[in-house]
């Protein structure tokens, strides 16, 4: 054991400079984040303002390369529409759209800023939900939860 330690200490001394440089995870730029702001409630045909505040740490990011919103109704992701958002002030980007029908929608902010890509996703309800829609939604939710509970450990290596 002692000999092993000596050997390793020796190796360590040789590698001294290397170790210094090795700052685990620390040398990465601070994370860009986006918060989506939506009204509490919306009715069909209303014009709804979609907003996102882009930040990097404490700093508001006003120089994002591109901010878009993708909007789709639950179950029809392939028909998603994309809206280009414009910078209003202090890192807030906005776009406006109309939701044609009642139902559960998804609003995703696609933010490309400072060489990072974040795409926060929010669920948004328009009008009143039918019982059927709620049921369908709950079913998909339940499956998800079941999935989380079922997932086993991932075995790796030998």
């Amino acid at each position: 054991m002692k000999r092993l330690i000596f050997l390793l200490v020796g190796a360590l001394l040789l590698a001294g400079c290397n170790v210094q440089e090795n700052d685990p995870v620390g040398n990465q730029p601070e994370r860009v984040d986006g918060a989506i702001i939506l009204p509490d409630k919306a009715e069909p045909e209303d014009t709804v303002e979609l907003k996102t505040v882009v930040t990097q740490g404490e700093e508001q990011v006003a120089d994002a390369e591109e901010v878009k919103f993708a909007v789709w109704k639950m179950g029809s992701e392939e028909e998603a529409i994309e809206l280009k958002a414009v910078h209003e002030q202090d890192g807030m980007y906005a776009a406006a759209t109309e939701f044609n029908e009642e139902g559960i929608y998804f609003v995703q902010a696609k933010i490309d800023a400072r060489e990072q890509h974040v795409r926060p996703l929010m669920q948004f309800i328009v009008g009143e939900l039918t019982e059927e829609e709620i049921q369908e939604f709950m079913n998909s939710k339940q499956k998800e939860e079941k999935n989380d509970a079922e997932e086993g450990h991932e075995h790796h290596h030998h």
């Binding site: 090795n22 995870v25 984040d33 974040v118 795409r119 996703l121």
Partner: peptide, 18 residues
Amino acid sequence: QYSGAKLTDVRFADYGLL
């Protein structure tokens, strides 16, 4: 899982010598 923000990113270069 909610924003897609990178929480950690470790590459070979970040490993210690051993």
